[in-house]
Design a protein around this nucleic acid. Sequence first.
DNA 1: ATAATAGAGATAGGTGTTCC
DNA 2: GGAACACCTATCTCTATTAT
Length: 334
Amino acid sequence: MGKHERGWVEATEKLTAQLANDAEPDGDLEAEGRPDLAEALADRIRADFPDRTAVRHAGNSYDSLGDLIVESDGGSETFLEAKFVASGGTRANLGQDTLTQFELFEDATAWSDFREEIGFPEDRQALLQEFDDYPDDVRDWSYKSAVYDRAKHLKNVLDVSRGQNTGSRADEVLADPDATETEREAARIVNAILELDREEKLAYFDHLREAEQNPRNVETFAHLIVCGYHTADALREHFDTDLDEIKRLLENDSYRLYEVDKNSGTVSVENPSELLAGFEWADTRVEIPEDGTSVSVVTGPPGNRRRVLNIAYNWKNKFQGIQTPSMNVFVPEA
DNA sequence: ATAATAGAGATAGGTGTTCC
DNA sequence: GGAACACCTATCTCTATTAT
């Protein structure tokens, strides 16, 4: 979540606490936040915690897990992570080098560095240069965007429609007897880059497979993702110190994920400990397939191995191998 | 059909560069 | 030396494709 979003989110969280406490809402917070969402969330918290004695804002997220803390009779506390979402799905989109940055692998090369080392950019450029009919305004090779401009043009030649898989479209063109030679050339180059990218990913996975893993970091990463920390910033805030605390909260059943739909105000609740029910946290590691472009975090002894996360290596924008390398993280449904 | 996953588009905000 | 601009990355969001 960008910085300019954090303001209204935090204001809405604080407002939620005030409303749930039946306190007079602060006017500044009402102006800065989304009172409608705060109202919806506060209503749900009141209903879910009839025995509450107070709800407080967790304050500085460096100090505490969760955004809101519900206090109940006897001093017990439930930590709520509140997320304001525009559409469903507990999915994280992370930077391309996240797994090495957070040292799930030790002494492994980052994906971005690995591509440089094996000469991926040069191979890709050579393929793009096989097409010699680019418009005059494509930028020269001193710019990274030189690649984007040319890839974009190839997609234009192929007439790829919005959202359409570029590789499928290239195959259509090659199968079309009426396609021009220019179109065929564009399709061949696109397919060659897609293949190059796949090879590059498989080679990187070979590299990762050789690397030592840090089981505690793998476990921390998995827990943070499942508990709703989905941005690099959020992961960083909690990575070093909070695994034991998270596990304790999950064991005590005192952690919840509240999702508020920004459009409808609908609130849904997830209990991460249910999602992880029956998991034995032993031999936690990243499993890397021989073919395929995503890895999994698995845990548990043989006979009770469970998949905690799926992590796909992919590129957004244009097509695979061109722009915005990234990692999509999925929490498989329990 | 529906769920899961892969692929794609948009954009905020940071950083570097240019120009006055 | 700072405004204006160009560029880039990370991430939010959405859609198409594939698996069940």
